[in-house]
Amino acid sequence: MNIVRASLAAVLIAALTACGVVDGTTKTGDDSANPVGITRLAPEDRVPGPEIAGADLEGQPVSTAQWHGQVAVINVWGSWCPPCRAETPVLNRLANELEGDVPFLGVAVRESATTSLAFARKQDVPYPSISDSSGSLLARFAEPLPAAAVPTTYVLDRQGRVAVRVLDRVTYPTLKGLIEDVSAEAAP
Rank of each mutant, 00 (worst) to 15 (best):
A86W: 05
A147F: 02
Q70F: 04
A95Q: 08
E58I: 00
V73Q: 07
I52R: 02
A148F: 11
I130F: 01
R140F: 01
D23E: 08
C81A: 15
V71S: 13
T153E: 02
D45M: 08
P126N: 10
A147R: 04
S7C: 12
G78P: 04
E44C: 06
A148E: 07
P151G: 02
R5E: 09
E111Y: 08
E58V: 04
T88Y: 00
A163Q: 09
V71L: 11
D101H: 14
S116F: 04
I38K: 10
V155F: 02
A10G: 10
P188N: 11
E180S: 15
C19F: 05
T25Q: 03
S136M: 04
A163M: 08
G59S: 10
E44K: 15
Y127W: 07
I13N: 13
I130K: 05
A147C: 14
A149M: 09
K176I: 07
Q70K: 15
D157Q: 02
G24D: 05
T153G: 01
A86K: 15
A53D: 00
R161F: 03
T115N: 15
R5V: 00
V22P: 03
P89L: 09
A184Y: 07
L156C: 10
P126M: 06
T26M: 06
T114N: 08
A86C: 06
P50T: 10
T152W: 00
S79R: 10
S129E: 01
R46P: 13
Y172M: 15
N34Q: 15
S133D: 09
D124S: 14
D124P: 01
T28S: 06
G106L: 00
L138C: 04
R158C: 14
G54T: 03
F119Y: 10
G177W: 06
L105V: 08
R110N: 11
L145G: 14
P82K: 09
C84R: 08
P128F: 07
D181F: 08
C81Y: 06
G59N: 13
T171L: 02
E143L: 10
A33S: 15
G78K: 02
V73I: 03
A9F: 00
A184I: 14
Q70R: 15
P188C: 10
V182I: 14
G177C: 12
A72M: 08
L91C: 13
R158M: 04
L178T: 06
A147K: 06
L138E: 03
P82T: 10
I130S: 01
G100Q: 11
N92D: 11
L8Y: 01
G24S: 13
V11C: 05
R93G: 15
L94C: 05
G78Q: 14
A53E: 05
V71E: 09
A118C: 05
R169T: 12
V125F: 02
L145N: 12
S112Y: 00
F104V: 13
P128A: 10
G49E: 06
A184G: 15
Y172A: 15
P103N: 10
E99A: 15
N2K: 07
A120C: 12
T25Y: 01
L98W: 12
D181R: 14
I13R: 13
P188I: 03
K27P: 03
S112F: 04
A10W: 07
V62T: 07
P89M: 04
W80A: 12
T88A: 11
V155Y: 02
G37D: 05
L94V: 08
P126Y: 02
T171M: 07
P83N: 14
N34F: 01
V22L: 08
A15F: 05
P83L: 09
I52L: 03
